[in-house]
Design a protein around this nucleic acid. Structure first.
Lengths: 215, 215
DNA sequence: CACGATACAACTACACCGTAAGCCTGTCAA
DNA sequence: TTGACAGGCTTACGGTGTAGTTGTATCGTG
């Protein structure tokens, strides 16, 4: 019987799988140990505690996002990496909430942040503008993803739920919301593309860069 | 000795105060009962459970944001209400995380959403564009606020912490981040204004509305 | 004023959580 | 063979949310 079974990586992988399948609230030390056929306390030999596990799985998710390519034009690089982050966060529905609760970024996130900063500096943005641009784009990534994940139903394939909501929840008291819900029903889904707000931001940044270059 | 002490409103007020003062993790049924000089289980006569309390206090926070004024131009109304939401979320540092974990919006949030939708429709946006615009702006509000709150130190008055971070945490491995941290030290604070990204979005929406009106 | 109805706080108990401390055992080098 | 030790196991403590039950203060009515 092999004794060397448990490693930190095995634990983190199991935690990610468990969170993906049953939600982040299912990731408890006992439940995790059970998934690894091990007692909860055994995990502590490889991991300093639950916080450590949360740090670890957040960073695993950040490892999935493509670091913006430095040879692309800044706009394309930023756009691609923002979309990549969005998709990674959608793949792991628990990740945005966990990431925002970590007060110190892990190595994968740092690598990503550093790459973005370098790209924007190379593009000609002033340092203060780099900070502003980064915050604006990243706010969109996290804010948009969180909102989409908070929706009570999947808008892609639940027109009947939207109908019910339009009629029941919104009475005549909320005409605007009712109209929106009906739109969701009529069309092929509410057109809330991630890229819409992203391109609004990138347009604005491009314009700002152009006008600053003139000075 | 008066018997009628507890009401739902009293409980929610106490919960908000407790969360403001000691953080959202301090809001447990026992701790909350203690704050109200009552046993934990007594709360269940006025509240259906902890989820109900979280719903309640989220909505109390949303009640603090100014509903966008319908007589203002759409841009000013949207800008004002976004800033108002940002400030409400900063006043209650726990609120953004709790709000994003609620799957069904409360009445105060509904009133707010409805007002935004009406304003955008009246301004001439198509229904799909109303959805897009709203998502973009709200994503910025929540995303930005969450990011600011997740920072490990208060950027307004902690240059020495930024220095330490610039030297220690970021070695030579992260030149971009190091530059950013040094910027934070040199200046009067990192210039990450909430309004920067917001105005980028509003500019883009204004332009889109203008070009659509031409058609 | 008296008394039954009712409302509501308190209590007990249960199943979970994270983790500190100590034990026990399989593995491997000497 | 023996000893050290890495690493999984057990127990225990103090916390969590809450279901179910019990006791009691207050109020409406006769």
């Amino acid at each position: 019987m092999p004794r060397r079974k448990l490693t930190r990586d095995l634990i983190l992988d199991a935690a990610v799988r468990l969170a993906d399948e049953e939600g982040i609230q299912a990731v408890s030390m006992r439940r995790l140990g059970q998934a690894l056929s091990v007692e909860a306390m055994s995990l502590y030999k490889h991991v300093s505690g639950k916080e450590d596990i949360l740090d670890g799985i957040s960073d695993l998710v950040m490892l999935e996002v493509e670091v913006p390519a430095r040879d692309l034009p800044w706009r394309a690089a930023l756009r691609q990496s923002a979309i990549s982050t969005h998709h990674a966060l959608l793949r792991h529905r628990w990740a945005s909430a966990v990431l925002e609760s970590r007060h110190n970024p892990g190595p994968a996130r740092m690598r990503y942040l550093d790459a973005v900063v370098c790209i924007l500096r190379d593009a000609g943005f002033s340092l203060p503008d780099v900070a502003r641009a980064f915050m604006a784009v990243d706010s969109h990534v996290y804010g948009f993803t969180l909102q989409v994940l908070a929706w009570p139903f999947d808008l892609r394939d639940a027109p009947e739920e939207a109908t019910a909501m339009a009629d029941d929840t919104f009475g005549d008291a909320f005409p605007g919301l009712r109209a929106m819900a009906n739109l969701a029903v009529s069309g092929p889904g509410v057109p809330v593309e991630f890229e819409f707000g992203l391109d609004l931001l990138l347009d604005g940044l491009e314009r700002r860069l152009a006008s600053a270059a003139v000075d």
